[in-house]
């Protein structure tokens, strides 16, 4: 109960800002040199940034962009990883070994280091940011679904389905996926929180979303230069990111308890 209340509270502020930002008539790219670092006012409820652009409008755009990139990484990375995991576990052999070695190597890079290196080498931009996050993002899903499928593969009902002549796609969708969905959903929700922080981190380091486009990470990056003059430029995007990530983590905890998934550290 407490947890749901917290999820509600921590989601409400980002979503209120998102709605307010879209209702607010200001343009996220409109430079207004009279309003440089202007404090909050009726026409600019969250003030203006170093180019006089409306912070509320930029926040709305940033929340939308950060959420869409992260969701896209989880959806594409999840589908890719789950497919790879199922196929690798099902057929085994050299393909399985090679794919899992590749997963091991990707996991040998701590945290977001590999994503930073990839994004840096590919060059900045949203598409390359997406590729970098995807390269790292599929691995968790692949390993998890592979382990789950390996333990299900020899169960009687799967063997029965094979004996009846079912093909792998039909077995995967009818029998495997419904049975491994619970841990995958938990992985996806914690993964979404991690990807949001990673996306913002890359944009904060300057290898992700590029100006003038606003993302939560790039807003923090631009704002830190004016931390001493106008700290709200950093406080707002960070607070929203923090609340979104916390809500998603709480949601993950909730799912894990509800679906009774035992997480391996």
């Amino acid at each position: 109960m407490m947890r749901r209340l917290f999820i509600f509270i921590s989601l409400s502020i980002p979503f209120l800002l998102l709605i307010a930002g879209y209702l607010h008539p200001a343009n996220a790219y409109q430079v207004d040199l009279d309003q440089i670092l202007a404090p909050a006012s009726w026409s600019h409820p969250l003030g203006c940034d170093e180019l006089g652009r409306d912070v509320l409008a930029r926040m709305a755009q940033a929340i939308c962009l950060s959420l869409s990139i992260s969701l896209a990484v989880i959806i594409f990375g999840g589908s890719l990883g789950i497919s790879i995991g199922i196929v690798a576990a099902w057929y085994g052999g050299i393909g399985d070994t090679l794919l899992m070695r590749l997963a091991d190597i990707i996991l040998s890079f701590p945290g977001i280091l590999l994503a930073i290196a990839l994004a840096a080498m590919l060059g900045p931009g949203i598409d390359n940011l997406f590729i970098a996050l995807l390269t790292v993002g599929w691995v968790g899903f692949a390993r998890l679904s592979r382990a789950q499928v390996l333990s299900l593969k020899n169960s009687a009902y799967i063997q029965a389905a094979i004996a009846c002549g079912s093909s792998l796609p039909s077995i995967a969708f009818r029998h495997l996926l419904p049975n491994i969905a619970a841990p995958l959903l938990v992985e996806a929700s914690f993964g979404l929180a991690a990807v949001m922080i990673a996306e913002a981190g890359l944009s904060f380091l300057g290898v992700g979303v590029q100006p003038p486009t606003a993302s939560l990470g790039s807003m923090i990056r631009e704002g830190t230069r004016f931390l001493l003059i106008e700290p709200w430029l950093v406080i707002w995007p960070g607070l929203v990111l923090f609340m979104l990530v916390m809500a998603i983590n709480l949601w993950g905890d909730h799912l894990r308890d509800k679906l009774d998934v035992r997480m391996h550290p």
Partner: peptide, 8 residues
Amino acid sequence: PNFWLGPM
């Protein structure tokens, strides 16, 4: 996020 906690 570290890059927000730090500035705060």
